[in-house]
Simulated assay, not measured.
Amino acid sequence: MASDNRNLLIEGLSDAVGFVGGALLGFWLGRLFGLDIFAAGYGNSAIGGIVLVGLGGGLGLQIARRWRRAQAKKQGKDT
């Protein structure tokens, strides 16, 4: 039971860190390219920034899940 809770905690935290980290990376990459997610209205700059944040968050989440799968393989667990 405690092991299940620990696994769920690790899964949730790694997903959250991966998503937020990827979204922040997308945000700062957008700022570097001049795309402002917080620009007034829905101009190209705002839409481009939103797209980069979404892509970054999704990629960060996938990287976190692959990392977790690799860690489980190292420990001999099949998930």
Results as ranks from 00 to 15, higher is better:
Asn7Tyr: 08
Gly48Glu: 04
Ala16Lys: 03
Leu35Ser: 10
Arg68Gln: 12
Arg66Asn: 09
Gln71Tyr: 06
Gly26Asn: 03
Thr79Val: 12
Ala72Asn: 04
Val20Ala: 14
Met1Ala: 14
Glu11Leu: 15
Lys74Trp: 11
Gly76Ser: 10
Gly56His: 03
Asp36Pro: 13
Gly41Asp: 00
Phe19Gln: 14
Asp15Asn: 13
Asn5Phe: 14
Asn44Glu: 14
Tyr42Gly: 09
Asp4Val: 12
Ala72Thr: 04
Gly22Phe: 01
Arg31Pro: 06
Gly12Ile: 11
Arg69Pro: 03
Arg6Gln: 09
Ala72Ser: 07
Gly60Leu: 08
Gly43Tyr: 02
Gly34Arg: 15
Gly76Gln: 04
Asn5Ile: 14
Ala39Trp: 02
Ala23Ile: 00
Ile50Tyr: 10
Asn44Val: 07
Phe27Gly: 01
Leu13Gln: 09
Ser45Ile: 06
Arg66Trp: 11
Gly26Arg: 02
Gly41Tyr: 00
Gly56Glu: 02
Thr79Asn: 09
Asp4Met: 08
Ala39Cys: 02
Arg65Val: 02
Asp4Gly: 11
Gly22Met: 10
Trp28Arg: 15
Ala39Arg: 04
Arg66Gln: 14
Phe33Ser: 10
Gly58Arg: 07
Ile63Leu: 10
Ala16Arg: 02
Asn5Tyr: 14
Leu61Arg: 07
Ser3His: 13
Gln75Gly: 07
Gly54Met: 03
Arg6Lys: 14
Lys74Gly: 01
Met1His: 11
Lys73Thr: 12
Leu13Gly: 05
Glu11Asp: 13
